[in-house]
Simulated assay, not measured.
Amino acid sequence: MNKTLFERLGGRNGISKIVDDTVENHMNNPAVNARFMPFKEKPEQLAIIKSHTVDFFSAGSGGPNDYKGKDMVTAHTGMNISHAEYMHVMDDIVMALDKNNIDEDSKKDVLSILWSLKGMMIGK
């Protein structure tokens, strides 16, 4: 029997680790860290963002829970994310997947999901 992407990413705990590592990568990436560094001073708000991200990706990868947060357009409206920033964010996510020893097929599945969301975030 084939495992869901959720299972291949290590379930909710695995996705939480990937999100933590991704946010750390964003904070260290000079191309996007200006968007993330202010959250170092707001740990409660950062925890909420991380939790929503885990919920979103858990639901979207075949996990058992529904996502109840904002849709991607609403969540990113006013941010005016550039194509270059989006590509840097994707690179940061791939680095987090590598750090967590995610297999190549699962990484491709994650990238496919991220690519499908691009139009909902860029330039909004």
Rank of each mutant, 00 (worst) to 15 (best):
W115A: 12
S82P: 11
M72V: 08
V94Y: 06
V32S: 11
T22L: 07
L117I: 08
N80L: 13
T74C: 09
M1T: 09
S16C: 02
G123V: 03
G62K: 01
K68L: 13
S106W: 00
M121Q: 01
L111R: 10
H26M: 13
K99R: 09
N101S: 02
A31Q: 15
F6S: 05
G10I: 04
M79N: 10
H52S: 07
T22H: 05
K108I: 09
I102G: 05
K107T: 08
A75R: 14
N65T: 02
S58L: 04
S61C: 01
I113V: 12
G10D: 05
A75V: 10
G62E: 03
W115T: 14
T22N: 06
V110I: 15
M87S: 06
S116K: 14
E24N: 06
P30I: 07
H83A: 14
F39R: 05
H88A: 07
T53P: 00
I122Y: 02
I93F: 06
K124C: 03
A84E: 15
D92R: 07
G78A: 14
I102R: 04
M1V: 09
T22W: 14
L46Y: 04
H83E: 15
P43D: 13
M37Y: 08
N29T: 12
P30A: 10
G14T: 04
A84S: 07
K40Q: 15
G63P: 02
A84C: 03
D98G: 05
I81H: 11
N13A: 13
G11C: 05
E24R: 06
V32G: 12
R8Y: 02
H88E: 07
Y67M: 05
V89W: 15
P38T: 06
N101D: 03
G14C: 06
N2A: 14
S58P: 05
G123K: 03
G78W: 09
D109A: 15
K108S: 08
Y67W: 10
R35A: 13
N29W: 11
R8F: 00
P38I: 08
V32I: 15
H88S: 09
G123M: 03
S116Y: 10
I49G: 07
G69E: 13
H88P: 03
N100R: 01
V89N: 10
A59N: 13
H26V: 07
F56G: 01
K70W: 10
S112T: 15
H88L: 04
E41S: 15
Y86F: 12
G62Q: 01
G63I: 02
L9A: 02
I102P: 03
E85F: 05
S106L: 00
V19K: 00
H76T: 07
V54L: 04
D21Q: 05
T77C: 08
L9K: 01
H52W: 12
G63Q: 00
G11S: 09
M121Y: 03
N100W: 01
I102L: 04
D92M: 06
N101T: 02
S58E: 10
A47S: 14
L111M: 12
K118C: 04
K124T: 07
E41P: 08
M27C: 08
M121F: 00
F56Y: 10
L5N: 05
P38G: 11
I102D: 05
V73I: 14
K124A: 06
V32C: 09
K17V: 00
A34N: 13
M27N: 14
A47P: 06
D92C: 07
K68G: 14
L117S: 07
T74W: 11
E24T: 06
M87G: 04
A59T: 12
